[in-house]
C-alpha cells in the first residue's frame, strides 16, 4: 500500500478541488468519501487522480453497512476494491453502524444495539470486508440520538470488545463521542479512556448543532470548545494520531479550514509537550 500517514488532514470537497489541484496547501493528507468516486469517469475522478499525485490519501465510506442484517454488498465491495487500487490509500474506513435493511439504503449512520449478538454478527463481516479490500478496515464510532432497550453494554465496552475479537482498528470521531455523551448523558472521557491505545489510527474532528436538550452531528460548524478540550484529552491519552477536520455543509473557504486545522496542530503539539514535561 502507500506510505505511512502522519500529521493533519482535511476531507477533500468539490469546493476546494481547484485550490488543491493548482497550489500546495498546508495540509498533510486528504480523506476522500469513497462513494463520491464510485463513478465511471468525469470531473470527480479527474480531480481525484490529479490531487492524489500531491497528497497522501485515506478512503472513507458511508455505505458499507457493516452492522446491517443484509449480506455485505459484493458489488459495492468490488467497486471499493477497484478504487483502493486506483487511490492506494493509507487505509480504508467506514462506520460502526447499519445504513438500511432489505436492500434499502436510508443513507444514514444508524446505531447498532450493543449486544453480544451484534458482536457475533460483526466478526465474520469485518473479516469479509478486510479480505475483499485486501487491507485493514478502520471503523468509526457514530453519533447517536436513540439507545435500544436491547443494549447489554455501553458503546465503549462494545467497541473495545470488537477490537479485541477482530483486531480491527479505529477511526475515533471525537465530536461523535461528545455529541453522544450529551445526548445520552455519559462522561465522554470515560469513552475515550476505554479505547485500546494501539487501535486508534485516525481521529475525526467536526462541528455540530446544539438543539437545546440534544446535539446533532451536522458537520456544518467549526469545532466547538468542548470538543477541542476532549481532543486535547484524546491526544494526552493516545499521542499524536493522524487527525482531520470534517466539514460537509456550509463549507468555508479553504484557508479558514486550514486555519482550524492549525488549531488542532498547535493543541496536539502543546499537549504532547506538556505530557513530556510532566513525565
Amino acid at each position: 500500500m502507500s506510505e505511512p500517514l502522519q500529521g493533519f488532514g482535511l476531507g477533500l470537497r468539490t469546493e476546494h478541488y481547484r485550490e488543491f489541484a493548482t497550489a500546495p496547501q498546508a495540509v498533510d493528507w486528504l480523506e476522500v468519501i469513497s462513494e463520491n468516486y464510485l463513478v465511471p469517469g468525469g470531473k470527480p475522478l479527474h480531480y481525484l487522480d490529479r490531487i492524489r499525485r500531491d497528497y497522501p490519501m485515506v478512503m472513507h465510506g458511508v455505505s458499507l453497512s457493516i452492522g446491517g442484517s443484509d449480506a455485505l454488498d459484493a458489488s459495492y465491495l468490488r467497486q471499493l476494491r477497484a478504487l483502493v487500487d486506483r487511490v492506494q490509500p493509507a487505509w480504508v474506513s467506514d462506520h460502526l453502524c447499519w445504513t438500511g435493511t432489505s436492500s434499502l439504503n436510508l443513507h444514514d449512520l444508524l446505531p447498532l444495539p450493543y449486544t453480544e449478538a451484534s458482536l457475533e454478527h460483526l466478526l465474520p463481516r469485518v473479516a469479509q470486508a478486510q479480505d475483499a479490500l485486501a487491507q485493514p478496515l478502520l471503523l468509526e464510532n457514530v453519533s447517536s440520538y436513540v439507545r435500544y432497550r436491547a443494549d447489554e453494554m455501553s458503546e465503549w465496552e462494545f467497541i473495545r470488545e470488537l477490537v479485541r475479537r477482530t483486531g480491527c482498528e479505529l477511526l475515533l470521531d471525537v465530536n461523535n463521542v461528545y455529541v453522544s455523551s450529551v445526548n445520552h448523558g455519559f462522561d465522554p472521557r470515560v469513552f475515550i479512556d476505554a479505547m485500546p491505545p494501539g487501535a486508534v489510527r485516525q481521529i475525526h474532528l467536526a462541528g455540530h448543532e446544539d438543539h437545546g436538550g440534544y446535539l446533532i452531528d451536522t458537520h456544518d460548524h467549526p469545532v466547538c470548545a468542548a470538543v477541542w478540550d476532549l481532543y486535547a484529552h484524546t491526544v494526552g491519552r493516545f499521542g499524536q494520531v493522524p487527525t482531520m477536520i470534517e466539514r460537509d455543509d456550509h463549507i468555508p473557504p479553504l484557508d479558514r479550514l486550514v486555519a482550524e486545522l492549525d488549531t488542532a496542530r498547535s493543541l496536539a503539539q502543546q499537549t504532547v509537550a506538556a505530557n513530556r514535561q510532566a513525565a
Binding site: D108, V146, D151, N183
Partner: peptide, 21 residues
C-alpha cells in the same frame, strides 16, 4: 417498544433520524 427512552426524549431523538432521512 424498541428504544430505551420514551415520551418526549424518544420523540426528539427519533425525530432526528426521521427528519434527516
Amino acid at each position: 417498544g424498541l428504544f430505551a427512552a420514551e415520551g418526549e426524549e424518544l420523540e426528539s431523538g427519533l425525530a432526528v433520524y426521521l427528519q434527516a432521512y
